[in-house]
Amino acid sequence: MSTVGRRAPAGAARETKERLAELVATASDGEVSAAEALATELPLSALGVTSLAQMRLIDAIEREFGVDVDFSDESLAALEDLDLLTAHITGRAR
């Protein structure tokens, strides 16, 4: 994923973020709930999203949003922050 190409409407961004929070909950086997993922200001790993859960999350994002995660430092940092992740995805979705 690279930087945001175009802005999505605010409502769409909110929906994307909420959906990402659900994917975090699934990928972490419920270790982190969707509500926790939405509410936190900490990096997601600090809540208990492990690298294994991040790998499942990447797979889910790629399948659901039709994007390729490129594993750059910037993309991997976005996995820690739902707002960054939302921006990446809404800027890139096909």
Partner: peptide
């Protein structure tokens, strides 16, 4: 962590 993610991928 990013090194492990790249290794896993």
């Amino acid at each position: 962590r990013p090194a492990a993610l790249r290794a896993y991928r």
